[in-house]
Amino acid sequence: MKRTVEILGIPFYNVSQNAFVDELIDAAVNKERRFIVTANPEIVMHAQQDLEFNRAIQQADYIVADGIGVVKAAKSIGKPLKGRVTGYDTMLGLLEKANEMKMSVYFVGAKPNIIDKLIEHVKCEYKGIEIVGARDGYFTASDSEAIAEDILVNQADFVFLALGFPRQERWISTHLDKFDRGIFMGVGGSFDVLSGCTKRAPDFWVRFNLEWLYRILSQPSRWKRALAIPRFMLAMKKQRRHG
């Protein structure tokens, strides 16, 4: 049984970044199905208010801590996690392994020009990967069924969705029962970074767990989203008091 740490009702899988990638690769090799949610404080707080979204992510096989706030929250209740497990680093790790093992990938999400650049980058840098499908994120509910069918027909080993939350998690939750294999994971803005269209925070910011601040400074429009952090801290304070 996998070990989890509950933060505001969300069970976080206690695993290291590298061990998690290895675990997912094993599942893919064995043609198993997995649904992964990479959750930060913003996602945790959204799940408190949106019960439909909460139900969707509770279906996941793994919810991992993509956010230093979650890691610190676990430590504050005396149940430390092994560290952050980010969507971007998990995707990179899986692509590297998939490249070595000549596995297949399907990409869904982002703007049309970004998905085109992403495909170009993956074909150049990961020559062992078979891209069995790709679709930008501008599609309707009726298109959704066709995309799911295409993924099913092509039997992708890995399906990465860069639709932003809560849309990407809802998409996976809605269509998951159609599949009996494949690693499904929402990766937010990771296509923008991997394609080279957006820069990831420099190493200094990553090392000191300040990626969130770097994103706000480089994209001021995100400041409203950052308000979830103090709300999360307040909710954790209440959990500690009553826990």
Rank of each mutant, 00 (worst) to 15 (best):
P41Y: 02
V15Y: 01
W171I: 04
E42Y: 07
W205F: 11
R33K: 15
N99I: 01
N209K: 13
I216V: 15
K111R: 08
L194K: 06
G243C: 09
Y62I: 05
D203P: 02
I114C: 12
L51C: 06
A47Y: 06
A19E: 15
K97T: 09
R225Y: 00
V122F: 07
E6F: 11
A56L: 01
L176M: 14
R181H: 04
G93F: 02
V153S: 12
D89Y: 00
Q59K: 14
H175F: 12
P220H: 09
L51A: 10
G78S: 06
A65E: 05
I151A: 00
V85N: 02
F204K: 05
L95I: 08
F191K: 01
I115H: 01
D116R: 12
K123M: 13
Q168M: 13
D177L: 11
R34T: 01
N30T: 10
R3D: 14
N113S: 15
Q17W: 12
I216A: 11
F204P: 01
A156W: 06
I131A: 08
G182I: 00
M101Q: 11
E100R: 11
A201N: 08
C197N: 13
M1A: 10
R240V: 14
S104R: 03
W205E: 01
P230W: 04
K127I: 03
D116A: 13
F53S: 08
G69K: 04
L152H: 15
G133H: 07
T4I: 10
F35Y: 12
Q219S: 15
N54R: 15
I10D: 00
N209L: 01
V105P: 06
L194R: 02
L163K: 07
P11W: 09
I68L: 06
A98Q: 00
V153G: 03
M91G: 04
K178P: 02
G109I: 07
M91P: 06
I68Q: 09
K31N: 13
L194A: 06
M45R: 05
I77M: 09
T90H: 09
M1Q: 02
H242M: 10
E125T: 15
K31C: 07
R33S: 05
K117W: 03
I36P: 09
Q48R: 15
Q239I: 10
A201M: 03
N30D: 12
V132T: 05
R3A: 15
K2R: 13
P41N: 02
W212I: 10
M45A: 07
F158T: 02
K199W: 12
G189V: 11
R135A: 00
V187W: 04
H242L: 08
V70S: 04
V5N: 12
V71K: 00
D157P: 03
K2Q: 14
R84H: 10
V71D: 04
F165N: 14
I68A: 06
T38A: 11
I151M: 01
T86G: 02
P80T: 13
R135E: 05
A146V: 14
E96I: 10
Q239A: 14
S173W: 08
Q219M: 14
R3E: 15
A226E: 15
E23C: 10
I216H: 06
V64Q: 05
A162L: 00
S16R: 09
V193M: 13
E100D: 03
K72I: 10
D22Q: 09
I25E: 04
R55N: 15
L92C: 03
R200I: 12
L163T: 08
